[in-house]
């Protein structure tokens, strides 16, 4: 109780920072990732390099990515901007991959029917492929968000704030209460996002 009195306000403030980091980076990653995912369904030659690049980023240790970005001009430095860039890079893979797989997974007979009826590529994409792939695409956004909430705790290491502050501080002074003050709100955030996006996903996925 005493702990909450002392840290309650900071927990709220750090949670706000945390949400801002995750929300901004996911929003930008969606704006980049979905068009990129669509593009590589149209230009198959690009699909390997694009997916390969996104994959490569994902395999790098997250702490290393945050560190690597600090000396990069414009996007680097200490603070939230760098953290957002790193989170975007991490979110891209699930979003691009699910967009690509969702569209490629549309029944070829349906695609052929659309073409045979005289739909232009754009009409086929907007009226048929994207609506049918929406559930899968949203699944990618959901995954990226849940991963993002966890990863954003590391942003504190490069001075971007967020709930990671508590965790790093707690580890430094060996205070498990402090660690939990960061970990519990982050877990609640991740579960809430997962649940809410899961609901939307189920509504958008076609019942067969």
């Amino acid at each position: 109780m005493e702990f909450l009195n002392r840290y309650g306000e900071e927990i709220l403030q750090r949670s706000g920072q945390h949400l801002f980091l995750v929300f901004t980076s996911i929003a930008i990653a969606v704006l980049i990732g979905i068009p990129l995912g669509i593009l590589i369904t149209r230009k198959p030659a690009l699909s390997r390099p694009v997916l390969g690049f996104a994959n490569a980023i994902q395999t790098m240790p997250s702490l290393a990515i945050f560190g690597f970005l600090i000396p990069v001009p414009f996007i680097g430095g200490i603070g939230a901007r760098t953290a957002i860039v790193a989170l975007i890079l991490y979110s891209l893979l699930p979003i691009i991959r699910n967009t690509y797989l969702g569209i490629m997974g549309v029944d070829p007979a349906i695609r052929e029917a659309g073409m045979g009826l005289g739909m232009t590529d754009r009409q086929l994409l907007l009226q048929v492929e994207i609506p049918l792939a929406l559930g899968v695409i949203l699944g990618g956004v959901r995954l990226a968000t849940v991963i993002g909430v966890g990863l954003a705790t590391i942003a504190a290491a490069i001075g971007a704030g967020g709930l990671g502050e508590f965790i790093f501080r707690g580890v430094a002074v060996v205070d498990s209460q402090l660690i939990l003050a960061g970990a519990i709100p982050a877990a609640i955030m991740a579960l809430t996002a997962d649940f809410a996006l899961g609901l939307v996903e189920r509504r958008l996925t076609l019942k067969k």
Partner: peptide, 20 residues
């Protein structure tokens, strides 16, 4: 090709109706 296909009806075995 778009004009051509709109002048030609096309029915396939899997039907290819749009499920949505």
């Amino acid at each position: 090709p778009i004009q051509l296909r709109r002048r030609i009806g096309y029915v396939i075995q899997e039907v290819g109706l749009f499920p949505h």
